[in-house]
């Protein structure tokens, strides 16, 4: 029998996986873009290097679109955007976990760990706000 606690724990695992996937995809996109730029630079010096990474360049044509707009993209902007997106998922996760804390507070009374839990949530949301503010400053869009 599923209780509210089990359901919310399951949801938090799913959201965690989604957030990690988003970070990995963002880092992957950045690496591919960096590789493509490195290949562009290399191809001017060593035309043979294009052949080595032919598969990647073919693939990148689909993802990156036209070269003129791509050159204007800032790497930091892409990374900041991806991290902010993942951070939003973690925020949703923390809100779900707060539901668990409140329900246990009313069911079992305040345990010895309640102050640590509150400090944990204050820390999480504080870090979220600071990171969001900082990344927004970095975001050059």
């Amino acid at each position: 029998m599923f209780t509210l606690d089990d359901l919310i724990l399951l949801l938090t695992y799913v959201i965690d996986i989604a957030a990690i996937s988003i970070i990995l995809i963002t880092i992957g996109q950045l690496l591919i873009l960096l590789l493509k730029r490195a290949l562009d630079v290399d191809s001017n010096k060593f035309p043979a290097s294009i052949g080595v990474f032919h598969f990647f360049t073919k693939r990148l044509k689909v993802i990156a679109g036209d070269d003129t707009s791509e050159s204007k993209i800032s790497f930091i902007s892409i990374l900041a955007n991806g991290l902010l997106f993942a951070l939003e998922f973690e925020c949703a996760n923390a809100v779900l976990k707060l539901i668990l804390v409140i329900s246990s507070l009313f069911r079992d009374g305040p345990g010895p760990d309640i102050y640590n839990t509150i400090i944990f949530f204050v820390g999480i949301f504080g870090i979220r706000m600071i990171t969001s503010f900082t990344l927004r400053k970095i975001d050059l869009k």
Partner: peptide, 18 residues
């Protein structure tokens, strides 16, 4: 599947919807 520049903008609107 969209170009990365478009993705950055669309990601922002998705994030705000969330």
């Amino acid at each position: 599947r969209n170009p990365i520049k478009d993705q950055t903008m669309e990601k922002e609107s998705i994030r705000l919807r969330l």
